[in-house]
């Protein structure tokens, strides 16, 4: 029974966050626009040679998603800081981790949607041809996005309530995400050229293990972070 209550709470928090986003829209639109803008800038930095663009596509895509994602994570707590919403949220019954999981779900949808836009634009801009193994590529994107969102949501709980949230979140988050970036970029790159060396599988496993380890660790640590 208690577990079902927790699920209901998680759903309520995710729904609340998504409703706020849906009603304002400005947040999502600007974050997605920023992702596309960064992608265009990468095009300027690396192009216009078509082959060079294609080689760098995976890296440019992931970095654009990362930079845009950082804004989304801070936003997710920023709305809670207005008029003491977070204090209110903490006073409701139920364990703390449901707040984390609820926000995780909302942020995953937010970042996933943004990623779809960035990928679509990236495929066009960087002249990437869609490989036969596109379902695996989709899996890589999903696993990479989960890693990004898990740590992003966790660190934003601290950074957004500190004095220097703009600089603190990327400073904490980016070094921690090095394995996600390496794995996601390497796997995407390999799959885009047909995965001749069969190396994508190992990277996908690494991504899965990373996601699992840090999901459990952040779930445990969230209570210590949110209650003070």
């Amino acid at each position: 029974m208690a577990f079902r209550d927790d699920v209901r709470r998680i759903r309520a928090i995710a729904w609340k966050d998504l409703t706020t986003e849906r009603r304002s829209k400005a947040g999502f639109n600007s974050v997605a626009a920023l992702g596309v803008t960064i992608l265009v800038l990468f095009g300027f930095a690396l192009g216009p040679d078509a082959q060079a663009l294609r080689d760098a596509a995976a890296g440019a895509l992931w970095l654009s998603a990362l930079f845009a994602g950082v804004l989304a994570f801070n936003r997710s707590y920023q709305v809670e800081l207005e008029s003491g919403a977070l204090d209110q949220l903490l006073q409701y019954p139920g364990p703390r981790w449901v707040i984390y999981v609820g926000k995780l779900i909302a942020n995953s949808l937010f970042v996933g949607l943004m990623l779809i836009i960035v990928i679509a634009v990236g495929i066009a801009l960087f002249q990437v041809s869609i490989p036969a193994a596109w379902p695996s590529l989709l899996g890589v994107f999903a696993l990479g996005a989960v890693g990004l969102v898990v740590l992003g949501t966790f660190y934003a709980a601290m950074a957004s309530r500190s004095r220097a949230r703009e600089v603190l979140l990327p400073l904490l988050l980016f070094p921690m995400l090095v394995p996600v970036l390496l794995a996601a970029i390497s796997a995407s790159k390999a799959l885009l050229v047909g995965d001749m060396m069969h190396e994508a599988g190992a990277w996908i496993k690494l991504l899965g293990a990373y996601d699992l380890i840090f999901f459990v660790a952040t779930l445990w640590a969230f209570e210590y972070v949110i209650e003070v």
Binding site: Y155, M158, M176, W203, L206, A209, I213, A221, Y224
Partner: peptide, 22 residues
């Protein structure tokens, strides 16, 4: 907060090592 960051950072050391080696 810093305890959480320190623990997660330490947890990440072997994973970073493995990914960079690969």
């Amino acid at each position: 907060w810093s305890a959480a960051v320190g623990i997660l950072g330490a947890l990440n050391v072997p994973i970073v090592w493995m990914s960079v080696t690969w």
